[in-house]
Design a protein around this nucleic acid. Structure first.
Lengths: 124, 124
DNA sequence: CATACAATGAACCACATGGTTCAGTTTCAG
DNA sequence: CTGAAACTGAACCATGTGGTTCATTGTATG
């Protein structure tokens, strides 16, 4: 009945939501250099430990970060998941976008080429 | 004082936030096929006109969608902005991720190659 | 003209987010 | 043993989000 493409994806939801906050993108940037503790990150981004912990939890939930606790310090690192999934989604849409505007260009070109045609895009 | 890289970007904030909701991704998918009115979209995604209007507003704010009103119907279409900006950001991070894990691989390889290293990767 | 139809704005609601403080718990250092 | 450091959890707060209903405004159309 309906050929609804699968657009539901809690995974993508969480991933994009995680990336939608500047501080969190900053954390990824920081962890790209070296691993870091909660205290270290909280210091760099000027917020409380508790606040930073929440951001880390969100990034961990999205799969971007993994943590392990050694002694009393929890160390945060980039997770193995990477951004392949999100990159793939975006790439698909970039192509869709492209196709859409290519079609428009073709239409415009056709109209200009045969200004007397009623309303058919008439592909050659 | 601090060499904080620019990670602030209201634009990316809005873009990723817009993409973080399944319905909104679905709308983009739908508009990739053809333009559509608010009523049409509201029908397809089973919500009120007002609700759909809000999603469209968010997508428009993020620059993904443009609308124009002809008579009493507002038509929504994919915007010219595309996803280049977001794709670029993600690509940068994919590379960062890659580099990070390549470094890990190298480290592991080194450790395996010279099992007599001072710092003990293998105990006993 | 009368009426229906598309969209809009305002107001409301439950719940999530992004932060805080405060009160613990473990763990480390002396 | 004492105390500080690092984290954690609970509770709180302001604001934003995702939806609704209801009333209104334009715009077609019979």
């Amino acid at each position: 009945m309906n050929h609804m493409v699968q657009f539901q994806s809690p995974r993508l939801d969480a991933a994009f939501a995680a990336l939608s906050h500047a501080t969190r993108r900053g954390i990824l940037e920081r962890l790209g250099r070296t691993d870091a503790s909660i205290t270290e990150l909280a210091g760099r981004f000027d917020m409380t430990l508790t606040g930073m912990k929440k951001h880390i939890a969100i990034l961990e939930e999205a799969g971007f970060v993994v943590t392990r606790k050694a002694g009393r310090v929890r160390t945060c690192a980039l997770g193995p998941r990477g951004l392949e999934h999100e990159a793939a989604w975006i790439e698909r849409y970039r192509q869709l976008w492209q196709a859409r505007f290519d079609a428009l260009d073709t239409l415009v070109a056709d109209l200009q080429q045969t200004p007397s045609t009623p309303s058919r895009p008439t592909r050659k």
